[in-house]
Design a protein around this nucleic acid. Structure first.
Length: 500
RNA sequence: GGUCUUGUGGCCGAGUGGCUAGGCAGAGCUCUGCAAAAGCUUCCACAGCGGUUCGAAUCCGCUCGAGACCUCCA
């Protein structure tokens, strides 16, 4: 059973065959650190984290590169070319790099909260100006770019004409053609520098007020919007690598431009498989700054937003995202997040208990159940191999949860299942929940002292209960509940607690 | 206007033509001093209209609705 991935390039699921197995090169477009990350940004980073983890689980040696855009992308097309980062820095009276550092730190903090593994290389745009300039020079030398007033533009028209003959027209990824683009009614102005409206900038001449600027063969300026990803992916993954990932909104023009740039420079389309995650929506609309409907990650964690009825923990959000397929839209609502919060809690508590059990060697007494469990567990990899369908894996895990809880409550005897099945199920649950899905226990391990205090209270309550002093026993339970500590009376007369 | 996606029960969401998706919420029951938790049972669905088919949420057509990209965007 082999891994299949949906390739945006072919618009179908393809068997994943690395160019140079067991090595896998994966590039994912990272954040622009000109502002705080929001819930929408969490989607690709969590989705591709799971993909990264799963590829490693399959035994691949993955080099995962995710960039940081710290030079800013720029407004274009009839608007003043202004570096967003510089502009905001002035407003906030900060050095550009100070701003970049602030939001980079915040981004890294959020990533670790989500328990995302760090990429193997996290290159920055400003750290690769030289590589970008070299790439631009090469494109000019090959005749696919031209200079105009200190700026350099990619000649889309010429590229499309020449490469269409090779079956690689501009627009092959997004399914567009230049003619359609030209038919649009959108207004064109201040575009006299460009020979064609589809041309995009590789290098922009910097106006005097522009703080971020670098020397280049074409004068002082800054790199265009798409060249950084091409330069950095080529440098660290080679001219042709396995997976290029990112949000669907980057498909055009960003990824289309990357293909054109890399194809000219390296004579190869950069990535074999293009993977795109879909958007998180809110009331059906894409969450994005253009819609002014973003929920920042810090707000999400603190609950400090009028949209939010409560805070949501990083694991709740991670679980929420994993409950859907990465290529579908996912609609945010308080109700949906609350559902995920409860579901994750239930799943985790069952898993936590089950992971600690040691099973005695025996054969199954309930063959049917044993078969069912074996089947459910076997399907984990089947579902993940089908374009990373984490939603279906989680559904199966939830079929196992009642079985685990029934074993715990002794509604089902442990020997109903064979020890082989139980051991396998225990191991696979740990692998999938913890290693692949990257879910972790959010409450820190008890320091011991707290546990001691709680055990003392539980003992006192038990005494009170045995004396039928329910006033005291309920007081202990209710007061603790008020502190977010929930007591649960177990079947055998014991009491356990969970801390919210 | 062009390109594309999509419409699943109160909410979020899987669904490869025939088999209960799953979660949360609701109802009932069991356990329990009460509760919580847990377990069991249960209600609620495939936008509409046609067509193909022995059989369609799944394929085709039309209608209506929603969204994304075409400008920075995960």
């Amino acid at each position: 059973m082999s891994l299949k991935v949906y390739n945006s390039l072919s618009r179908q699921k393809e068997i994943f065959t690395p160019i140079n197995a067991p090595y896998v090169g994966m590039y994912v477009c990272g954040p622009t650190v000109s502002g705080e990350s929001h819930l929408g940004h969490a989607r690709p980073f969590i989705s591709f984290d799971v993909i990264y983890r799963y590829l490693m689980h399959l035994g691949y040696k993955v080099r995962y590169v995710r960039n940081i855009t710290d030079a800013g992308h720029f407004e274009e097309e009839g608007r003043e070319a202004t570096d967003k980062i510089s502009e905001k820095a002035v407003l906030e009276k900060l050095e550009p790099m100070e701003l970049v550092q602030k939001y980079t730190n915040l981004y890294h903090w959020a990533m670790s909260k989500f328990n995302n593994l760090a990429p193997n290389i996290e290159p920055t745009a400003t750290g690769h100006i030289v590589e970008q300039i070299e790439m631009i020079k090469k494109i000019i030398a090959d005749g696919y770019a031209y200079e105009a007033n200190g700026s350099v533009y990619f000649d889309v028209e010429k590229y499309n004409t020449d490469f269409s003959k090779q079956g690689k027209p501009y627009g092959m990824l997004s399914g567009r053609n230049i003619e359609d683009q030209q038919d649009t009614t959108r207004e064109l102005d201040n575009q006299e520098e460009k020979r064609n409206r589809n041309d995009f900038a590789l290098w922009k001449s910097a106006p005097v007020e522009h703080i971020m600027r670098w020397q280049s063969p074409w004068g002082e300026g800054f790199p265009g919007w798409h060249i950084e990803c091409s330069a950095m992916s080529t440098k660290y993954l080679g001219s042709e690598f396995d997976i290029h990932g990112g949000g669907m909104d980057l498909l055009f023009p960003h990824h289309e431009c990357e293909i054109a740039q890399s194809t000219v420079c390296n004579h190869k389309s950069p990535a074999k498989y293009w993977l795109h995650n879909n958007m998180i929506t809110i009331q059906g609309k894409k969450m994005g700054k253009s819609y002014n409907n973003v929920i920042k990650l810090t707000e999400l964690f603190s609950g400090d937003s009028p949209i939010l009825s409560q805070p949501y923990s990083p694991m709740t959000i991670r679980f929420f995202i994993l409950q859907s397929h990465y290529r579908g839209t996912l609609d945010f609502s308080n109700e949906a997040l609350q559902a995920s919060e409860k579901a994750f809690k239930r799943l985790w508590e069952a898993h936590e208990w089950f992971a600690k059990q040691v099973f005695e060697n025996n054969a199954a007494t309930d063959i049917e159940l044993d078969k069912k469990v074996t089947q459910l567990v076997a399907e984990f990899s089947e579902f993940m191999n089908d374009d990373f369908n984490s939603a279906k894996v989680i559904a199966n895990i939830f079929e196992l949860v009642p079985i685990i809880n029934s074993i715990k409550d002794k509604h089902i005897l442990a020997n109903a299942l064979s020890s082989t099945t139980l051991d396998h199920m225990q191991a696979e649950l740990k692998v999938y929940i913890e290693s692949i899905f990257g879910l972790i226990n959010e409450r820190p391990a008890d320091e011991g002292q707290l546990d001691g205090v709680l055990q003392l209270l539980i003992d006192i309550r038990k005494d009170a209960k045995s004396r039928k002093d329910f006033l005291t026993s309920d007081k202990i339970r209710n007061e603790l509940a008020g502190l977010g500590i929930q007591l649960k009376d177990e079947k055998e007369g014991g009491t356990s607690y969970t801390i919210a």
